[in-house]
Design a protein around this nucleic acid. Structure first.
Lengths: 133, 133
DNA sequence: GCGCAAGGTTTACATCTGTAATCGACACAA
DNA sequence: TTGTGTCGATTACAGATGTAAACCTTGCGC
């Protein structure tokens, strides 16, 4: 496999870390924000300083996960990796690692450990119906 | 909160890392093995030396994830954390982080990105029927 | 009895991560 | 024009992680 689709300079081994992920979330939510704006969104919640956000932004740009477009003398940051792609990658990664690639096992596990509420089950059921009319 | 339920010396913030996980797998598969035996299982695949395995075993014992039972002058290592518990924890963690705690979203995502084969769908369907007769 | 191999323990060390402080350029107000 | 606040870039530094060598003890073969 490894069709390397969506490869935009990212995707190799460059993993997005937990802290970096928090920053990505802000930008996925609304792209083209400055460091200060991103900070406004996360610094409070995570107890970070602006400096920290700047570091994370830089690292993400280096990794090719973000694009930095100059706007006057500051930069606007925008995700280069789609949230879908990232989330999908991480999910598949987990399924691979913990369930030998068998996604159904994951669902089974979630169900068994009661991580799935009745509402979840309803949703999934609806989903299935939708996927196979 | 922090009910610290299931706390058997483990479970706090002590996370099992990727490398450590490889070792755990071997022992979950067959408990009570020596360092050398574990190495035989993983050293080849991961290109590790026995020393590396020893380090990982020690760290896991420290973390309370493994028990070391003396057997003559060596130790037999056995998991203290059940695979189920670990896998469940990691799964819930991912669902929390990437899907805001909504497990159904995960399933939806897997389905949308075609990470779910028709066979998977069958399995899940069967599962649902089982879960809610 | 003695040296060696096998075991665990200690120490090592490069990366990666989290979290910032500091530095240098520069736009803008006074 | 000079000071000041603002940016990104550079540097810092502790803790986690991956990977392993060095070390110390001790059972076993000779």
């Amino acid at each position: 496999m490894t069709p390397s689709e969506g490869k935009s300079g990212f995707g190799h081994g460059e993993r997005i870390t937990e802290a970096e992920y928090a920053v990505m979330e802000v930008l996925w939510d609304r792209p083209r924000q400055t460091a200060a704006e991103v900070c406004e969104e996360v610094c409070g919640a995570r107890g970070w300083s602006l400096a920290t956000v700047k570091t994370l932004l830089s690292r993400l740009v280096q990794k090719g996960a973000l694009a930095s477009e100059p706007d006057g003398r500051r930069f606007l940051y925008t995700p280069l990796v789609a949230r879908e792609a990232y989330v999908g990658g991480e999910s598949r990664r987990l399924v691979e690692r913990l369930f030998g690639g068998n996604a159904a096992s994951l669902v089974a596990h979630l169900a068994e450990t009661e991580a799935l509420t009745p509402a979840d089950l309803d949703e999934i059921e609806a989903l299935l119906k939708e996927l196979r009319p």
